[in-house]
Simulated assay, not measured.
Amino acid sequence: MRPYTVSNGRTRPTTALDLLSQVMATGVTPLGYLGPEHTQALELCRAPVSVAEVAAHLKLPAAVTKVLLSDLVDCGALTTKPPEFYHNPTDRSLLEAVLDGLRRQL
């Protein structure tokens, strides 16, 4: 199935979601019809999980996944919180350590 079909042609979520945003099911049952992808996403969110992880499990593009998750947030079935950075993500020593690790993998 084409990704734009899954999101009903929508390309923008109504909720601001980052790839590292955490989403979690609230226990509220959504009213109305949800597609199978919505149901799968909701199942994946029983425990806090990142948007990127949900996209990977659903094998859907991140943009489509954000639309699906946004639908679930809008109906109260999911809650979201922004990513928490314990370190400065632009800290030079952190970036150099990541680069060094990547070089060793190649």
Rank of each mutant, 00 (worst) to 15 (best):
M1Y: 03
P3R: 07
P3H: 07
Y4F: 11
T5W: 06
V6Y: 03
R10S: 04
R10T: 01
R10C: 03
R12T: 14
R12D: 08
R12N: 04
R12H: 07
P13C: 06
T14L: 13
T14K: 14
T14E: 13
T15H: 04
A16K: 14
A16G: 00
A16M: 05
A16I: 11
L17R: 02
S21I: 03
S21Y: 02
Q22C: 04
V23S: 04
V23L: 04
V23M: 03
T26C: 06
T26M: 08
T26D: 04
G27L: 08
V28E: 10
V28M: 04
G32S: 09
G32P: 11
G32Y: 03
G32Q: 08
L34I: 06
L34S: 11
G35H: 13
P36K: 13
P36I: 02
P36F: 09
E37V: 04
E37K: 12
T39F: 00
T39C: 07
Q40K: 15
A41L: 02
L42N: 02
C45W: 06
C45L: 03
C45I: 06
R46P: 00
R46D: 02
R46N: 04
R46V: 05
V49T: 15
S50M: 09
V51G: 04
V51F: 07
A52T: 03
A52I: 00
V54P: 05
A55L: 05
A55I: 03
A56D: 13
A56F: 10
H57I: 00
H57Y: 07
H57D: 12
K59G: 01
L60D: 01
P61K: 11
P61T: 05
A63S: 15
A63G: 02
V64Y: 01
T65A: 07
K66T: 02
K66E: 12
K66W: 00
L68C: 04
S70T: 04
D71I: 05
L72W: 03
V73K: 09
D74R: 14
D74K: 13
D74M: 06
C75M: 01
C75W: 01
C75L: 02
C75T: 09
A77R: 01
A77N: 08
L78K: 07
T79N: 08
T79M: 12
T80E: 09
T80W: 10
P82T: 10
P83C: 10
P83Y: 11
E84M: 12
H87Y: 11
N88C: 08
N88S: 12
N88A: 10
P89N: 12
P89C: 07
T90F: 13
D91C: 12
D91H: 14
R92A: 12
R92L: 12
S93N: 09
L94C: 01
L94Y: 12
E96Y: 08
V98G: 00
L99Y: 01
L99K: 15
D100V: 02
D100R: 15
D100W: 06
L102V: 08
L102H: 10
L102R: 13
R103S: 06
R103W: 06
L106V: 05
